[in-house]
Design a binder for these strands. Structure first.
Lengths: 362, 362
DNA sequence: AAGCCGACTGTAAACGATTACATAAAACCT
DNA sequence: AGGTTTTATGTAATCGTTTACAGTCGGCTT
């Protein structure tokens, strides 16, 4: 039915080995022979069977991309960064959406193993995600945005969101706010905790009291933000809220809806700082503060780390920490400068890529 | 090195055939034997090699998902719909991002062929995308959001955006607007053209003059919207613009930025209708009109069509047309009802799924 | 001229599963 | 009891490549 290497060999009057060599181009083949083979392949419309090749070679040119939520713009940008690297190096991506569910994650980890992918890129649902089997098999694992157990030999790419959160809250304090709230993601998610930590640190350093009731763990989506904001504005046992740190842009939509419904003006009645510079945040007037996370860059770095590990296996695990940035304060209070295109157009800046060794392999 | 079916067979003291049967569970195996096999597999940590299985079975439980832009929220939702179906039926997804580039698309089509995927879901960059080879091979192809050449035997899922565009412009006319502009996507993209068609139809039916200068073909992103809006508001040879139909939410961000920069209030100074109900659109006051496209549903329907075709091949190609909806006009002019959660939370409504046969196979 | 080397090419054994076919044992029927 | 089906399992070929190993052949060295 389908054209195989054997058919090509027959037509070109060579052996299958030669045909294979022409395409894999590892060993020398006489130019004239190569030409004949190529011509035969073209004539027959031969397409090599990747499955057979991978079976023989014991690994497929495929990476498993295991991410929490393909609808999250942050992860979408990460995906894009990975895809660009993978594509340029001839790797394909197996897309695995875990929905933050450990069971789906486990199932996909197993699938990655079954497919004999040559590497796994993951945003784990928890630090104890079951990647051990993959590592035992010698499969490179890169964890992104969230760390895995310290004793595992996996490369890690993180964004220092704790520091960014602290800087953001610092600024809120400097501006004179005292009742500052924090709406973050689910307890179980690493970055959610980090952002709270930064929040705590800033308050602590400024010697301000810490009201637990001002910290809200919510689902990392619009509805989560909505519910948390309602609770925050209703439950006034710590007095009225003056500012809110929101841990991602999807939650920010929910939060801003609640403010609008209650006739509270963002930035004026309640100051808002939000993680992720979603394009639409540039529309609000007065502008709210956004914390830029280098998502595309994160993906690219992860891809590069994986490439390096595939090339030279066995080296110690590395951790790359990227910076989230809080743009300089806007002095023009009401109307941000009409500078043509907003900075959000510079979508894919060049990464300041400097892997540094951090921990020895286990 | 790795554990194979042979190792399991040896430990369980059966043949490899029996082990295979236990896992594929096609033929009967004595319960006691099955138990022994499973135990042996567990003990050895056996993971079946999907590559070998696929090679033998001549097809892998994988779908190729070839989409234009993974960062486009619309396509992201489509992806999600597909992923849910695929995952529940045991298929994995090969993620292919074409970036609207025909060369990347062609390359990925070839990769899909090499991987011997069992189906292809695609948002083609043009009606003449080279899917012929796949079809010749008997591979099911489902095209989404954009049609392929009429003579090809592919299932199609579309959204009737022409009708939605017409309805939207109708409404703008009813409200008394005359200088209505349209910012759409690149000429080459089907949906971009459809939306202009709807726009034209509405003007034509109302007997209004059609100014070509009010139609702008832009890139389907923020920057595209920005540039188009600038041109539209500068180039006033048709007089000041009263309303704009914007063909997707990413462009809308750019458009709204320009309005803000020029101190023009959306909905009041310039009325805006935008395709795609991105969550953030609910934040604007007064609210702008949004056209809801059933993206998640589109993905689900595409997945189901593919499933059906895999089960019963050879049936004639089908086309499913989904409706984009323009919510009923909001009578409360300035402040939309604070009804708790906005409707945008109902993210994944049940589809009104009714495939209808439309064209015979080629 | 014999020996050696390098460049090409072919033969055939993997890779790890599935499955057509064969066979043995058990169950059923009359 | 003898024949016939059914059930459970084994044997071995097969999927389409890659690749170790073994030639072959001409040119070069001594």
């Amino acid at each position: 039915m389908t054209i195989t290497i054997r058919d090509v060999a027959r037509l070109a009057e060579v052996s299958t080995a030669t045909v294979s060599r022409v395409f894999a181009s590892d060993t020398a083949v006489r130019p004239e022979t190569a030409r004949r083979v190529r011509e035969a392949a073209r004539q027959l419309g031969y397409v090599p069977n990747t499955l057979a090749r991978s079976l023989r070679q014991q690994s497929s040119a495929t990476w498993a991309l295991i991410i929490a939520d393909i609808e999250n713009p942050f992860l979408t940008q990460v995906t894009r960064g990975i895809e660009d690297i993978a594509q340029s190096e001839g790797y394909s991506l197996l897309l695995c959406n875990t929905d933050e569910r450990p069971d789906k994650e486990a199932s996909y980890l197993s699938i990655a193993e079954q497919f004999r992918v040559s590497g796994v890129l993951i945003t784990p649902t928890s630090p104890t995600s079951p990647v051990d089997r993959l590592l035992a098999r010698g499969l490179p694992v890169i964890t992104m945005d969230r760390p895995l157990r310290q004793d595992l030999a996996v490369d890690t790419v993180l964004i220092d969101s704790r520091r960014a959160a602290r800087a953001a809250v610092d600024r809120l304090i400097t501006r004179g706010h005292r009742r500052i709230a924090c709406i973050t993601g689910p307890r179980r998610v690493f970055t959610a905790g980090e952002r709270v930590l930064g929040y705590r640190e800033a308050l602590h350093e400024a010697g301000l009291p810490l009201h637990e009731s001002l910290i809200r763990y919510a689902d990392f989506n619009e509805q989560g933000g909505h519910l948390a904001a309602v609770e925050l504005l209703d439950g006034t046992d710590a007095g009225p809220v003056e500012a809110i740190l929101v841990a991602n842009s999807m939650m920010a939509v929910g939060v801003l809806q609640v403010l609008r419904d209650r006739q509270l003006r963002p930035s004026i009645d309640v100051e808002i700082v939000v993680f992720d510079d979603a394009p639409w945040t540039s529309l609000l007037t007065p502008a709210i503060s956004v914390i830029h996370q280098p998502a595309y860059e994160l993906g690219q770095v992860a891809g590069k780390l994986l490439l390096e590990r595939l090339q030279t296996p066995g080296q110690p695990a590395r951790t790359v920490m990227l910076n989230a940035t809080l743009p300089a304060e806007n002095t023009d209070e009401d109307h941000p400068p009409a500078d043509g295109l907003a900075s959000s157009h510079l979508r894919h800046p060049k990464p300041d890529f400097q892997p540094r060794r951090s921990r020895a392999r286990s």
